[in-house]
Design a protein around this nucleic acid. Structure first.
Length: 380
DNA sequence: TCCGCTGACACGTTTGAAGCGT
DNA sequence: AACGCTTCAAACGTGTCAGCGG
């Protein structure tokens, strides 16, 4: 079993991969050894490189690829709750035009977002670290009246999944001092009710076993099916979680920095986007900081709740901005932000907590934890 | 007219119960 | 009786398409 004390080597490995600009932002010590790795990273990268789209339907649609992560650095015998939510990348909506996504104005008002709790929660750290955890049953919907706990998204808006590791014996006794949030830029996607990019369709058909019926015949496969009935297939036990087991992993290495460093980082990010042409999603790193599948680096802030993010290792299909500016994110307008409220008095009201690669978080301190509606939105 | 959304459709996959043998 | 394996059928999940509505 992977024990907390055994990660020093990995930390060193990752730290040695820091480039100069990142080193200048790194904090000399790390407050937490919790790390999260995206297991099916290469699959995500395949989609990310052409612009991931996720279908949302009234009754809920599963994600594909779904999120599969490995956690390490937990205390083996301490209980943790692991949750996932999906937050807006920025404050814009998009449209598919001329074979690419481009901005189509400000984002629509967003409904409250559900937080999806992993069904194993709460569980001791050794359980979480024993094997990768995935969220294959999570469904996305555009039905704001959804009563099934599906995560509500808006079509034509960009999102990314976010994971929270909370030290807690039960979901009703979360300890704010130990919340760690993780996100992966390559998991950003555009929510759609129908696929826009045919490349995405093809990639999904190639990788998703549920779509095998569409592998041949292209767009005319539907009519083909009508005349080519095949006998019922045997029942091979195919574990969808194993579809990308061989994926190289993207590792999330905690590092810390402080507010002044965040400002520098933001300035750097904005500078990298000069010219108005987006080099990628709002989560996309400066290309000069792009790291490949080697241990990745993130920037994190030493606060009660951290969000850790690593750059994607592949360029993303460019987004065309009609505004000549980087789609600077909104303040996480969905309800999920409330999940990250720190306990009262834990930080100043205006202190920004996280800003990485253009993504900017600021804690809302208008509600304290005891009043947080997160649990009422949490589903598992 | 354009564009996004919805439901029907047929197919493959998953799941769990039932049956059988050891 | 308990266990493990196989078989079967229903449920589920998928992308495509036509039609609808704003």
């Amino acid at each position: 079993m992977e024990m907390t004390g055994g990660h020093d080597d990995v930390h060193h490995t990752a730290d040695s991969s820091l480039n100069e600009s990142m080193l200048s932002l790194a904090h000399p010590y790390q407050p937490s050894g919790i790390r999260m790795t995206l297991e099916n990273a290469d699959l995500w990268q395949s989609f990310h490189s052409i612009g991931t789209e996720m279908i949302i339907t009234k009754h809920g649609r599963r994600m594909f690829p779904h999120c599969r992560v490995r956690v390490s650095g937990l205390q083996p015998f301490t209980n943790y709750v692991i949750t996932m939510d999906i937050v807006l990348v920025d404050g814009f909506k998009y449209k598919w035009k001329k074979e690419q996504w481009e901005m189509a104005g400000a984002a629509d008002p967003h409904p409250p977002c559900h937080t999806y709790m992993h069904p194993d929660s709460p569980a001791p750290g050794r359980h979480w670290m024993k094997q990768p955890l995935s969220f294959p049953k999570l469904k996305l919907t555009n039905n704001t009246l959804n009563q099934h706990g599906h995560i509500i998204l808006l079509s034509m808006h960009r999102y990314y999944p976010r994971f929270h590791v909370v030290q807690a014996d039960n979901p009703y006794a979360l300890r704010w001092g130990s919340v760690q949030s993780f996100s992966f830029p390559e998991t950003a996607f555009t929510a759609v009710t129908a696929y826009q990019n045919p490349k995405i369709t093809k990639l999904k058909i190639d990788h998703n076993p549920f779509a095998k019926g569409f592998r041949e015949g292209g767009t005319h496969s539907h009519s083909k099916r009508l005349s080519n009935k095949s006998p019922p297939a045997k029942r091979p036990t195919l574990d969808r979680d194993d579809l990308s087991n061989s994926s190289p992993s993207l590792q999330r290495m905690p590092s810390t920095s402080q507010f002044t460093q965040m400002e520098a980082s933001r300035a750097s990010t904005q500078q990298s986007l000069k010219g108005g042409h987006l080099s990628g999603s709002a989560l996309e790193p400066d290309p000069s900081e792009s790291i490949h599948v080697e241990p990745l680096v993130l920037r994190e802030y030493n606060c009660s709740s951290d969000e850790q993010m690593v750059p994607a290792s592949m360029p993303y299909q460019p987004y065309r901005s009609e505004y000549g500016m980087f789609p600077y994110p909104s303040r996480d307008p969905d309800g999920a932000q409330i999940f990250l409220h720190p306990p009262p008095n834990s930080r100043s009201a205006s202190e920004p907590c996280i800003q990485q690669h253009g993504y900017y978080h600021q804690y809302n301190t208008t509600a304290d934890w005891s009043q947080s509606p997160v649990l009422s939105y949490t589903t598992w």
